[in-house]
Write a protein that binds this DNA or RNA. Structure first.
Length: 824
DNA sequence: TCGCCCTATATAAGG
DNA sequence: TATAGGGCGA
């Protein structure tokens, strides 16, 4: 721990006000004084030391050489590659950083280095991350390193926060006002639904959610409505997707709103149409740093390209950090290709590989490396352990079903606990969130403290969204979506019929909904009852808008929630979670007082607000593999290694080989979260949506190196997972090396179909073998008697693609895949 | 307009 | 199995 915040604070103002080099130098000395003054009170970690100007590296240019020689203290403790990555600040640089190699530390130290050597001031550095968490961590750690620089770096943030900031500044150039609303997914879907209805498109057949995803995808690829090709739009609404997209964009402008995609896409448009503006940013940003570059999508890439264009033949100082092996967000638009192409994209780019792993034992690292080597599309790194321990082998345990899996993991946790390990040092990483429940239930009976990370976020909760809608409608009268959300919440007797009248008028006159409501209150259009209710509501909004001028906004919020009857609505609600909702509302009002303006608060909540994780208590973490990226634990449990679940069926069905490779990277991410212990398990039977299904061991198990793995069997399991001896080839990739299970008619049919289609005889993707859920009918019919290798004899009760529902004579009703069944 | 009942649906989730 | 959202009757 370095000096506490209280000590750093007095110097913040000085940092903010500094304007030139002389002053800055003095400030560094002040910072140094902080350190000295506290020396006898606080034990100081040299690696997190304050920058000392007299000891900048000599190699970085004339300015720094004046400061003397010697290695600056912030470089202490970095290995050679890390130090090189920190100090190579001229020209494009790709830092390929494997799991646990100190990537974040390099990024942070690099910023400190740029500041210390005075190559740029804080406000001349653009540093982008994906998550608020990463941005916050970077802010804090740079602050620790430099003493106080946090406020000095206005352009350190997420892609979206920075995009929003730029867009607000130039909003009028893209048809928005600077106080535009940022819509989230829920708003988007509701808006699109309205457009579909307006166009008489059957919302059942063509769900708004699906189109919202398509539009999102287009925006991720940097495509505006004018650039969609017919093939992109598919047959959605019989080819009208592009038209709706166009309408959607027009609607957003009318609502003075932008969705998340627009925060970047509109910036790109802005830069392209206004080269002068782009140039001011290019001049401003002397250094650009990007975290998790493997997660960037096309739009983010284009945005960066624009900002990082070479100027006057000088290449931009853009540094991207990432790991192609940890790219797990292809499904939300990330392009691994961006990182694979970096050297070609930025002329003269250097690449530095960080391969020294400071996290895991060699067994864990070997398992991860061996597995990931099965991927074809990668830049290739070899991680070396620096932990110096072989450690326990990675364990693989086969159990009968998911219930036993939870029981078994619970026991292991208790065992570790008895040994003295903290629950905080353990995590269960699942592929899909439905797996979490079984663990929660088990831990409740055991009385084990656990913490679920993920789930609905604070501002996605209904009561928070409702409250925000009231505030948004007060703040920004053109926010139709907000107004519509709450006109009848709490129930006021203003139902669909009334809303439709408001809408029709609004659309006909091209005015916002609230204005439409005002005008209709002046006429006889509405029934007297609705009219007077609506009139009263509008009067309240007027009142709130007036009071907003004078009242502190958290008090205003409280008044709005009380006077609108919203608080009362939940007070009168007798359901179990009503109390919690009221507390959330209180928390919302409380958090508002931390902001100076209502606008500032609304910006914060749509871009930043997160759920409090409550990390103080000792508890085991349960989270998804995606959620675990970037974290580390002493002991990691990886349950559910079964075909169909992990790798997930949908990934295979929808993205084939690429999907499989992404699943494998996810697998790699999971294993490399572990420092000392990595415990994999699989169940032979799993209940999905209430029905039991037999499970096939995950192919990823075959891809682990036998000498780093120990297989155990709980004994109660049927057959078990007999690992070892067959790891030479994946049973899913090569010609079938097994003679047992895979000789069933289903299997043969799958093979035959594959051949008939004339598709390449190369790797078979799981979807074609085991669970093709569409297109291929089953050879079995209802009523047919069959034999299943595990469950014995039974009768087919239902057929759905190649999935059979079977009433077994001894095992009861189960869902199975036809390739594991013979006619009996 | 409200509220109940029925049915369709269920990977991951950042901003 | 759980839930959310739509349809329909009062």
């Amino acid at each position: 721990m370095s000096h506490p915040d209280a000590d750093a604070k007095p110097f913040r103002r000085s940092w903010q006000s500094e304007k030139n080099n002389t002053r800055r130098l003095r400030i560094y000395n002040w910072a140094n004084a902080t350190y000295i003054a506290n020396e006898n009170k606080i034990r100081f970690d040299a690696r997190k030391s304050i920058i000392q100007p007299q000891s900048a590296p000599p190699s970085t240019g004339p300015i720094t050489s004046q400061l003397g020689t010697g290695t600056p203290s912030y470089l202490d403790g970095l290995n050679a590659e890390q130090a090189l990555a920190v100090t190579s600040i001229d020209g494009p640089l790709l830092v390929l950083a494997g799991a646990g190699t100190g990537k974040t530390r390099v990024l942070i130290t690099r910023i400190a280095h740029i500041l210390a050597t005075r190559r740029a001031r804080g406000q001349e550095i653009l540093a982008v991350t994906f998550t608020n968490k990463a941005a916050r961590e970077m802010k804090n750690r740079v602050g620790e390193l430099v003493g106080h620089a946090v406020e000095g770096m206005p352009w350190l943030g997420t892609f979206h926060a920075i995009g929003a900031r730029m867009l607000r500044y130039h909003a009028e150039l893209v048809g928005l006002k600077s106080d535009f609303t940022i819509l989230d997914t829920d708003d988007q879907v509701r808006l699109i639904k309205q457009l579909l209805v307006a166009d008489n498109i059957d919302e059942k057949r063509w769900p708004a959610r699906q189109l919202a995803q398509m539009i999102d995808g287009w925006k991720n690829r940097g495509l505006g409505p004018d650039r969609i090709k017919a093939a992109d739009a598919g047959d959605f609404a019989n080819g009208r997707a592009q038209k709706i997209y166009t309408d959607y964009q027009a609607r957003l402008k009318m609502l003075n709103a932008a969705d998340f995609g627009d925060l970047l896409l509109e910036n790109i448009r802005l830069f392209r149409e206004n080269p002068a503006i782009l140039e001011t940013y290019q001049q401003r940003f002397k250094f650009i740093l990007v975290d998790e570059y493997q997660d960037t999508n096309v739009a983010q890439y284009l945005w960066l390209r624009l900002l990082a264009q070479p100027r006057n033949d000088t290449p931009a100082n853009v540094c991207v950090v990432g790991d192609d092996d940890q790219s797990i967000y292809g499904w939300r638009g990330a392009e691994v290709d961006n990182i694979l192409r970096f050297e070609a994209d930025f002329a003269g780019a250097k690449t530095i590989r960080l391969e020294r792993n400071y996290r895991s034992t060699s067994n864990i690292l070997r398992a991860a490396s061996h597995l990931i080597a099965h991927n074809e599309a990668r830049l290739g790194k070899t991680l070396q352990t620096d932990v110096g321990e072989e450690g326990e082998p990675v364990s693989v345990t086969s159990v009968w079903d998911s219930e036993e899996e939870a029981r078994q993991i619970g026991e292991q946790i208790e065992q570790l606990q008895r040994k003295g390990d903290a629950l905080n040092s353990m995590a269960i990483l699942v592929r899909a969130s439905f797996q979490m429940r079984e663990f929660e239930e088990r831990f409740i009976t055991l009385g084990l403290n656990y913490r679920v990370i993920g789930g609905p976020r604070f501002y996605e909760r209904r009561e928070i969204r409702d409250a925000l809608a009231y505030l948004r409608a007060t703040h920004q009268g053109a926010d139709d979506l907000a107004f519509e959300r709450i006109v009848n919440v709490p129930k006021r007797g203003l139902g669909d019929a009334t809303i439709k009248i408001l809408h029709d008028h609004a659309r006909a006159s091209a005015i916002p909904l609230m204005l439409s409501a005002r005008q209709l209150c002046e006429t006889e259009e509405l029934k007297p009852r609705q009219r007077s209710t609506l009139h009263a509501l509008l009067a309240q909004f007027d009142d709130w808008a007036i009071r907003a001028e004078a009242l502190p906004h958290h008090e205003l919020a409280e008044a709005i929630l009380d006077e609108s009857g919203y608080t009362r609505m939940w007070q009168d609600d007798k359901s179990a979670n009503a109390q919690g909702r009221l507390e959330n509302l209180k928390e919302l009002v409380r958090s508002m007082s931390e902001f100076e303006t209502l606008g500032g608060f609304l910006e914060h909540i749509s871009l930043v607000m997160e759920r409090d994780s409550g990390e103080a208590e000792d508890a085991i973490s349960i989270m998804t593999l995606h959620g675990a990226k970037g974290l580390e634990f002493d002991s990691v449990f990886l349950p559910g290694w079964e075909e169909g679940l992990f790798p997930h069926q949908r990934a295979l069905d929808e993205s084939g080989r690429a999907g499989l490779e992404e699943e494998r990277r996810l697998c790699y991410v999971g294993i490399t979260r572990a420092r000392y212990r990595c415990k994999i398990s699989l169940a032979q039977n799993r209940r999905i949506h209430g029905l039991w299904q037999t499970a096939v061991p995950s192919r990823f198990l075959d891809e682990l190196p036998p000498d780093a793995v120990a297989v155990t069997d709980t004994g109660s399991s049927y057959g078990g997972y007999n690992y070892g001896g067959r790891q030479t080839a994946s049973r899913f990739d090569k010609t079938d090396p097994f003679q047992s299970v895979y000789q069933s008619p289903g299997w043969r049919r799958a093979r035959r179909q594959n051949a008939d289609r004339g598709s390449d005889p190369g790797p078979l993707i799981e979807g074609e073998l085991v669970a093709r859920s569409v297109n291929s009918g089953s050879a079995y019919g209802v009523g047919q008697r069959i034999l299943h290798l595990k469950f014995g004899y039974g009768t087919v009760a239902g057929v759905e693609g190649n999935k059979l529902t079977i009433d077994f004579e001894s095992a009861g009703r189960k869902k199975v895949i036809d390739s594991f069944v013979k006619s009996g």
